[in-house]
């Protein structure tokens, strides 16, 4: 019973957060960085696809460590798939 009440409370909290986020995001839809990226991405990075221009040039730091996270996940899965006798 406690679990179900907690679940319903969690769903209500998520709903309120989402609706607040949608309301707030409408006010800031046309802000400074969007104009900057739309006008200058092709000249500064040479990429017609703005998404690629952002994640391979302006935010390369993030995407490199995203690749690192994938490496850590793969090695964790290999570690867990070994038998107990091989690990300990």
């Amino acid at each position: 019973m406690i679990k179900k009440i907690a679940l319903v409370l969690m769903l209500i909290a998520i709903l309120i957060t989402f609706s607040l986020t949608i309301q707030e995001s409408k006010e800031y839809l046309d802000c400074f960085s969007k104009d900057y990226f739309v006008s200058k991405t092709f000249r500064e990075t040479g990429s017609k696809n703005i998404v690629t221009g952002i994640y391979l040039d302006y935010r390369l730091f993030d995407s490199i460590f995203e690749a690192g996270i994938l490496l850590v996940v793969v090695s964790g899965i290999i570690f867990m798939s070994k038998k107990d006798e091989e690990v300990l």
């Binding site: 092709f42 000249r43 500064e44 990075t45 040479g46 990429s47 690629t52 221009g53 391979l56 040039d57 302006y58 390369l60 730091f61 490199i64």
Partner: peptide, 18 residues
């Protein structure tokens, strides 16, 4: 962590990095 080709060069060379 940015493009190693300078900003003033043409977009044809910047594509190599991408």
């Amino acid at each position: 962590f940015t493009n190693f080709i300078s900003i003033e060069s043409s977009t044809t060379y910047k594509k190599i990095f991408l």
